[in-house]
Design a protein around this nucleic acid. Sequence first.
DNA 1: TCGTGGGTAAACACCG
DNA 2: CCGGTGTTTACCCACG
Length: 547
Amino acid sequence: MSRTPPSGVVKNVMMVESASESIRSTPTSQNGVGSVPNQSDAGGTREGSASGETNGELSTAELLHFQQQQALQMARQLLLQQATGLSTPSSTENKQPSVQVPVSVAMMSPQMITQQQMQQILSPAQLQAVMQQQQALMLQQLQEYYKKQQEQLHLQLLSQQQAGKQQAKEAALGNKQLAFQQQLLQMQQIQQQHLLNLQRQSLVGLQPGQGQVTMPGLPQVAVSPSDLQQLLKEMSNNQEDSSKQDNAELSSTISTSFSSSKMSPPTVHPSLPNGQSALQNLRRDSSSHYEMPPSSHPLYGHGECRWPGCEALCEDMGQFIKHLNTEHALDDRSTAQCRVQMQVVQQLEIQLSKESERLQAMMTHLHMRPSEPKHFSQPLNLVSSATHTKMSPDNYPDGLPQPPTSATAPITPMRAGTSVISSSSLPSMGPVRRRIVDKFCTPISSELAQNHEFYKNAEVRPPFTYASLIRQAILDTPDRQLTLNEIYNWFTRMFAYFRRNTATWKNAVRHNLSLHKCFVRVENVKGAVWTVDELEYQKRRPPKMTG
DNA sequence: TCGTGGGTAAACACCG
DNA sequence: CCGGTGTTTACCCACG
């Protein structure tokens, strides 16, 4: 009773986490709307819409603003038409967007091929190619989405600036704009981090021919460049001369967004009717499926392998490719690492979603966007859900790490609301942890050093056992001893994940301290401190040398 | 199928 | 009495 979590949100998350059993038994019972920002309705008492004040005649600027709003509304409707059509349950089968790239259908549709079939049909190398293909598609989608989001933010910023000129309280609005721009920056940083993380994992294989690729399940932002250009044309036709500068800015923003999507070098992959040729092409040469220039590889830089935790020195590309194929082939280790990386990506998605919600709430509060309260979070949710959906065992390419464990049940409720799933939706870290820490003896310190910033900021559960974390905390200190409270502090300091559900993990920490003989309690002058009996710790886990 | 390791929850005792 | 600390037990789950 007295130790219940302080806030309802945390409580809710805890319930989702602790009630994993009930989730499994009743998958639809959790809808996870708990942490939807409650400030989203804060603007309700304010004046009505942002589309203009109706106090008399319109000035030129107001007219311009109104026209811009109209154009934006058209754009929104276009986006919504595609988004709503695909958010319905049967949308995947019934309403394939016209810009669908067939290869993605072949790759993603669950009914097409099962995991086992994949396994039987494809060799590990082929599976790797499939993995990369799928990840490339995913990344493509994310990039498309991010760009569109930025375009929209930019549009909104512009319209807000227009509107802002007409408001009396310019100073206050300036502050709001500043905050908004900061939020925008933050989102861009998250997006960049997200993409970097994907690229870091060598899951990048952008193919110019797939500029309009959409995946079943997240075609919500699938506005083709031609659509947008048409929109722009309409907008520019409606604009007055005074807006030409802004228009040019808009155009350049959007055009650069699309042109930037062509950053990958030209390749020979056309859009194929069934994706087979692309796949065969991928199969032909495992070293070419990244579609990078011969001298460039996302996993290769500064003469070393960029695979997480590797850093092997490779003199040239050939050596690196050889190294990649031998050391990072499709095996348990790579799979586990990929799985972790996938969770990293997921958490970043979730974080982005949260920030988007926050931004939406801010914008709602500033009544920049009177409608579509979920415009920003929805696509992301779809991204997440689509990601999970596609990665269900049924249609997941074999060998590709499935996000949390093998069970899809705990993932299913994620679709209801990404904000609640957060880190607690990864209940299966145990096996992953075991694999990485025990089986492969990955040094926790190096992993921590490598991803220190990430774990510190993203609410992703570290892939280590409590025991290894506690040990690390203790060994991190000069005198190799910590009080319980200092251990707590280390956890919260090092991992964003441990800044919530404190009752749960603190209990686990105490439980581990007591349970394992390797942790020795030493009475001190100031109280009790905990130390590590390294012999006992090593005894606990017989080292298995691999690789 | 079973043993094992890890995570979580909870009860309980002790102490300041 | 309360809250933090420490111990212990029970249960679940994934894995080998």
